[in-house]
Amino acid sequence: MDWHLLISQMLNGLQLGLLLFLLAAGLTLILGIMDFINLSHGSFYMIGAFFCASLMAITESLIFSIVFAVIGVFAVGALVERFIVRRLYKNDHLDHVLVTFGLILVFDTLAHMIWGSAGRVIPLSDALNGQIEFGGFVIPAYRLLIIVAGLTVAVGLYFLVTRSRLGMLIRAGASNRSMVSALGVNIDRLYLVIFAIGAALAGFAGMLIAPITEASIGMGNEIIIVAFVVVIVGGLGSIKGAFYSAILIGFIDTLGRSYLDDLLKLFISNQSAETAAPALSAMMIYLLMAVVLAFKPQGLFPPGGLNK
């Protein structure tokens, strides 16, 4: 066993998990509190990346670009909630699925029209493009930044949910929706803010990954399905559940990709192990979700009393 390899794979898993968490956090709140299925949540991930890339081209400051891009995505999220999503809370899930699928088409095409097909790069400084070494152990600097940024936001979100008035309303909403309205809270505004925060978090995730992959059309459409798996496994409306299950799925996916073929080679021929491993590692998270749904239909960490 190569320990260096294992540790760097764990860091990769953690990084993927944190990105998934940023996506799933908004998704789980929107699902848990508003009972709204948003397939187009991944579009905010894409919009965030493009906003950041465009701002970066003008300002050449990563921090500045990220701050303003997050505000931009928050605004887009608020607009989408105000003019489209708000009309749909009373409709059934079928309408949610269809309208947000339509929104994916709209956002992807708009991105193509505005930013062109080539995708946009977010250049990094030499320091961020380089590596950091500790204890004979080398990891890409930017990966470390993603992990630190992801963990910071996760901690911030934890305090927001557990310590603030907004957080109290969010927790109340996730476990008992009618109670919140009974408290005389402006539900419309609460929903708008939650939706926009969720969008901003997704956009932030897109900004973090874009310097690695680049901002491209439809970049969020695939990862959003995985984020849904995270939400289901973690339990609807539970930020804590989303965090743990995102990390879990990040690890399963990364470790599966790196070790599954070696594992399979113990049982089947090299040739078939090499082709079966990628498919099987792609399938594992869905298998996990099916198993969780079969035995714990409410997810691993359902919101409620336990979710402090």
Binding site: I37, A279, A282, M283, Y286, L287
Partner: peptide, 20 residues
Amino acid sequence: LYFIMITLAFAQMLYFTFVS
């Protein structure tokens, strides 16, 4: 919602089976 997601999950599993 759970029904929507689990039907999706099975379809994805079949998709990846045929991809392999």
